[in-house]
Structures are given as C-alpha cells and as structure tokens.
Design a protein around this nucleic acid. Structure first.
Lengths: 132, 132
DNA sequence: TCCAATACTTACAAAAATGTAGGTACTTGC
DNA sequence: GCAAGTACCTACATTTTTGTAAGTATTGGA
C-alpha cells in the first residue's frame, strides 16, 4: 500500500483502500469487531497469516486510528487489541464483505461438486465405451 | 492474489478478497456500476492505473464472472465492459467503501489544514521570540 | 505508402508484499 | 541453572504485484 494519493482529488474507493487495502486487514478488523482480542488469539483466528504479517498490519491499522493496542505490564506480556469508535465505522464494509463471501463460497463449493459429478459421469461413459 | 484458499473452511471475508482484492478491482467495479464503459474510458477514469494493470484486472474480474466483455468487430476496435448481474451483487460493498472513503478524505483534509495552521502559528511564535 | 485510432500483448525491470528462521526480554516454577 | 510462556523484532529470501517501453492487428483516409 505505498500509493501517491491526493486527498483532494482522489477517488473515494481508493481512499478506503489506503486504510483497509492490506491483505489481512479486513480479516483482522472482522475478528476485532466481535470484541477485544489478544495477539495470540488473532494469530489463531487468522491461521494463514504469519505472526509477522499480523504484527505489521495491526501496526498500520493502529497508525490509521482504526484499532487500539493496550499493553499490560505483566510477565509473560499481555497485549490486547480492539477497534476504536472510528474503526467501528468500517463495520458496514466488513459485514458486506463477509456476507458476500459467504454466498460466494457456497457457489464455489456447488461448482466444484458439479464438476466432480460431471467427471465421474464421464468416467462411467468411458467405462461403458470400453466395455461395449 | 495468489492464495491457497479452502472453499469449505476458509474465512468469508477472505473469500471476498480473492475476488475484489486486486488494487484496482474495486475502483473498476465502481466505475462500471454506473454503466457500460469502453476500455479507453476506464483508463481515463482510473488515471493512476496503467493500461496494462487495467487489462489484467479486468481479465480477472471477467474470469470470476463479475464483469462481461464485449468486442465489437469494427476498425478501430471497440470493446465494452459492464458488470454482470452477479457482479452487481458486489454493489453494497463498493458503495460502503465509497461512502466511508468520502468521509475519510474529509477527515484527512481537515487534519492537513489543521496541521498547516498549527505550523504557521508556530512560525509566528518563532518570529516573535526572535524579535523579543 | 504512411499515419491515425483502439485495445490490447509481450518482454523486461522495479518495487512492494509476504514468508522464514532465528533472536529478545522478562519472570515464575522446577 | 533452565525451560516455559508471550509478543514481539530483525535480517534475509522469495514471491507477487506493478510499472515501462515497445510492438501488434486492422482499415480508412491523406
């Protein structure tokens, strides 16, 4: 997300992308929208992301005022992340993405099933042809 | 967007990102939501993107069934892009992004103004101090 | 014959994002 | 003394994305 973007003339959609355009950012925001989480929890909730990526993306979100980081002076350390009030204004976007994605997954899954079914039917035909 | 993603177990938000996660995709979809456009028009409407990027992202959107590409057999060639019915289901996401971005821009702009005002006040103070 | 116009494509180069492997700090409990 | 536990950080390597510059096809018109 290193973009030369003009706040006066730039496109609205592009502006949003400067904040949530990172690969893991929408996912992390989504996780935090349902409540405060510790670093380790976030890692477990985003298993495809590495710890390093999660750290980096959280830092950027923090810098943009979307989330808040709280360090508890304990040993072993405990760090909690939560969305700020401002960050919560992203909720409609994240929710829309979640809802669309759910539907998309169902579609994709159905497609795969259909493809497999077609495949095995094809195998049947081949077998019959070989036998005939 | 080259991700090993599991359609059964994967996160909903992440699923959406496999489709609209490209840097220019949300912008292109946004442009097309307001109506059919020619390639050249899209280039003019997304001036920060190169022609190559626009081509590539359009191809991916087409492959995902979000947009439709129509080639008219003319010389010089004319190619039109439009969102499919399915693509239109992304509208809530794009609109939410647009709305949030608009607000964010206003905020950012105000911040910059404030920073500049503070700066020139600082200069005044310095001048006074130097004079006193 | 050469140019203009459009929507690309291709090879190559640069930049950005992401991943890997290791290390750090601190204190409690064995 | 040593391992465990947490939330990182750092250097480095690799992958992915994006950009640059040039070339392609077609045909009507100067």
């Amino acid at each position: 997300m290193a973009r030369q973007y003009n706040w006066k003339t730039g496109c609205d959609v592009e502006a949003t992308l400067t904040v949530i355009g990172g690969r893991w950012k929408p996912i992390l925001i989504c996780r935090l929208l349902s409540g405060k989480k510790r670093f380790g929890e976030l890692c477990r909730l985003a298993p495809n992301a590495t710890e390093r990526m999660i750290t980096l993306q959280l830092r950027e979100l923090e810098a943009d005022g979307v989330i808040k980081r709280t360090v508890h002076a304990e040993v072993p350390p405990r760090v909690e992340y939560e969305v700020t009030e401002y960050g919560r204004s992203l909720q409609p976007i994240i929710m829309a993405m979640q809802s669309w994605g759910k539907d998309f997954k169902t579609r994709k899954y159905a497609e795969e099933e259909a493809a497999e079914a077609a495949d095995s039917e094809h195998e049947d035909t081949n077998r019959k042809a070989a036998n005939g």
